[in-house]
Simulated assay, not measured.
Amino acid sequence: MGETIPIAVPRKGRPLESVLNRLSRRLDVAKLADEISSTLRHEKALTKGNLTPDEEDVYQRLAEYSTVSDPTAPEYTLVRDDRAGKPRRIVFDSVTLPVDGIDGVPNGTDVQLVGREEPFRALRTHEFALGFDSADLVLEEVVELRPEPLDRIADVNARIDPAESDVRVVTGLGDTVYHTLMATPAVASSGSALDRAFVESYDGPLCIEPRYERLVRAVLGTQTLEGIDFRYPENGREEEAAIAETGVGIYLTVTGSTARDHGLLLGEQLFPSETVLLETTPEVTETAEAVRAVLNGPDLETKLAVEP
């Protein structure tokens, strides 16, 4: 009988899809991964009201998705969504996948993907040896704030106090979006580049999402932020609209088209936001290490590769 290595993963969204895409490339599970992603996209559309369900009873849909008689089938669960009315939303719960036949992995080894609302925190409490979550959460929770900026992902692990957390970043999955500096032409009219140096010389309001405040302090450094007054978007207000009203701000961008629609200029991409493979170092057994090697690899086009 082999060993089952549990891996904490997000319950929904882009990070979970990135994990499933990674497993599709490393294991022969493309059909299963697509099934899970399609199911969750469908349920998201229902929750947002973009689709009308054929079956109104969410519990009946849940029962149809989770075939408990088949131990290899994915299982789902319900959470309360944060949209108006707090609707119940079907999200990922778990699935077990064989990793037999891969060099270096002991025979009979399985991996069990286990959905968590915040996988990083489950690793912090030593529930899992391995997991996936957003790199942002690491910066928001455990990276030490210093006067100097954080320039490289290799510095992230170096800034985690061992007494604070045993979790370390292994690598990113390449699903990169960026925390980008942006400003109105009126604020950026001095002709200087819209970059970290601009922020250092700037005094005044800077609009960010409240959850990113500690991340911004870590990335830019506390010295750069002297003279900055953080402002936050009002509840339900589009972030780019709030930044346009404030004059300067930082928010996640993929193409930047929404920012431009609000008349904003895009500046420096301050830090990549990716889904990252994490490990709780004291919990990594030889088998978990072999599984980690399967999930990692030089084929990853990541901005978050950690130097050994």
Score class of each variant (00 low, 15 high):
Thr281Met: 07
Gly131Leu: 01
Arg214Gln: 07
Leu78Tyr: 10
Ala244Cys: 01
Asp133Ala: 09
Asp93Cys: 00
Thr280Val: 01
Tyr76Lys: 08
Asn21Ala: 15
Phe198Asn: 02
Asp229Ile: 04
Tyr76Met: 04
Val29Ile: 11
Arg168His: 05
Val276Pro: 01
Val187Lys: 15
Ala183Asn: 01
Leu27Val: 07
Asp155Cys: 00
Ala197Val: 03
Ala244Thr: 02
Ala158Trp: 11
Val216Tyr: 12
Glu64Asn: 11
Ala241Val: 04
Thr255His: 14
Lys31Pro: 06
Gly13Tyr: 04
Val187Gly: 13
Arg89Gln: 12
Thr184Leu: 08
Leu46Tyr: 09
Arg159His: 13
Gly221Lys: 05
Gly227Ser: 09
Leu194Thr: 00
Ala45Asn: 05
Arg168Thr: 03
Pro6Asp: 12
Gly221Glu: 04
Ala63Glu: 13
Ala188Asn: 05
Ala290Glu: 00
Pro147Cys: 11
Glu141Tyr: 10
Glu283Leu: 13
Glu56Tyr: 11
His262Val: 06
Val68Asn: 08
Gly247Cys: 05
Ser69Trp: 14
Leu27Asn: 07
Lys31Gly: 10
Leu145Gly: 08
Pro10Tyr: 14
Glu43Gly: 00
Asn157Cys: 03
Ala288Trp: 00
Thr246Asn: 07
Glu283Phe: 09
Ala154Trp: 02
Val68Ile: 15
Pro53Gly: 12
Asn235Trp: 14
Ser134Leu: 06
Ala241Met: 06
Asp175Cys: 04
Leu300Glu: 11
Val294Pro: 00
Thr52Glu: 15
Pro272Leu: 13
Val177Lys: 07
Leu20Asn: 04
Phe198Trp: 13
Ala241Pro: 02
Ala183Trp: 12
Pro149His: 09
Leu278Ile: 00
Met1Asp: 06
Ser273Asp: 08
Thr184Cys: 06
Thr180Glu: 06
Ala63Tyr: 09
Lys48Gly: 05
Glu75Gly: 10
His179Pro: 02
Val142Trp: 14
Asp81Lys: 10
Leu300Phe: 08
Asp203Gln: 10
Ser38Arg: 14
Val138Ala: 13
Gly2Ala: 02
Thr275Lys: 06
Pro10Ile: 14
Leu173Thr: 02
Val276Gly: 01
Leu23Lys: 02
Glu118Ile: 13
Glu200Gln: 13
Leu16Trp: 07
Glu301Ala: 15
Asp110Gln: 08
